[in-house]
């Protein structure tokens, strides 16, 4: 048996030898704890517009929770139970709040040009979340199993059929749309939201267009940590 040198030996930490170790090193390098859960923010983070990102996530969780409640007793429950109808109303209004907060967040980030400073992918994942959410909401309207669903599905089929999507994605197939609405799309949107939030934590909140010299790395009169 050949004995190998301990990679964390006296010479200091080396590149981890295992996949697991490399993943850990990369994760801790990209997301040190104080960056993942910071208790300080840059001094310019002082506007109500900043709360709409977190409000969107909060609304997303309420949407997921109320959707989960609707799932417990199945897709027809809300038609025959007063409690079910109220949970459906919670789901609808939390979606309205979610979409409204997300769009206001998008407006805010546009006017901040929040893609500056290597943050382009943060904008990209955010925009993908927006379109993913529209798709998820759309499939939700399709699985209400009422007149609204009937009308929306028979109209929407034309748009989707006209470019061939309808040949595989059939908006009049309740079973298929229910699967997309309560599993596939929330999974995709949830995953992209997670990546989006991690990107924000990794790069931090975009700085203003104009900065005080004191806030620049080269500022001689600024005390360094």
């Amino acid at each position: 048996m050949t004995l190998l040198e301990d990679p964390t030996g006296p010479q200091g930490p080396l590149r981890a030898a295992t996949w697991t170790g490399r993943l850990r090193d990369r994760a801790t390098k990209s997301f040190p704890p104080e960056q993942l859960l910071p208790d300080r923010q840059p001094i310019y983070v002082a506007s109500w517009i900043y709360v709409f990102g977190v409000a969107t996530i909060a609304a997303f969780l309420v949407v997921l929770a109320t959707g989960t409640l609707l799932a417990v007793q199945g897709p027809q429950w809300w038609h025959r139970s007063g409690t079910g109808h109220y949970v459906n109303s919670l789901h609808l209004w939390s979606v309205e709040l979610f979409m409204a907060f997300m769009v206001i967040h998008l407006w805010g980030k546009f006017w901040m040009a929040a893609w500056r400073g290597k943050r382009a992918m943060t904008w990209v994942t955010g925009a993908v979340c927006f379109f993913g959410s529209i798709g998820t909401a759309f499939t939700g309207y399709l699985v209400q199993s009422n007149f609204d669903s009937q009308f929306i599905s028979t109209q929407a089929k034309d748009g989707l059929n006209s470019v061939g999507i309808g040949s595989r994605f059939n908006v009049m197939d309740f079973g298929q749309m229910l699967m997309w609405h309560i599993f596939l799309l929330p999974l995709i949107v949830g995953a992209v939201v997670l990546v989006h939030v991690l990107q924000v934590r990794r790069r931090g909140v975009v700085p203003p267009f104009l900065v005080h010299p004191i806030d620049l790395p080269a500022a001689p009169d600024r005390a360094r940590p």
Binding site: D39, K118, R203, V205, P207
Partner: peptide, 10 residues
């Protein structure tokens, strides 16, 4: 692209 300037509690 990270911020090197002043921070505050948040």
């Amino acid at each position: 692209g990270s911020w090197q300037g002043r921070n505050r509690e948040y």
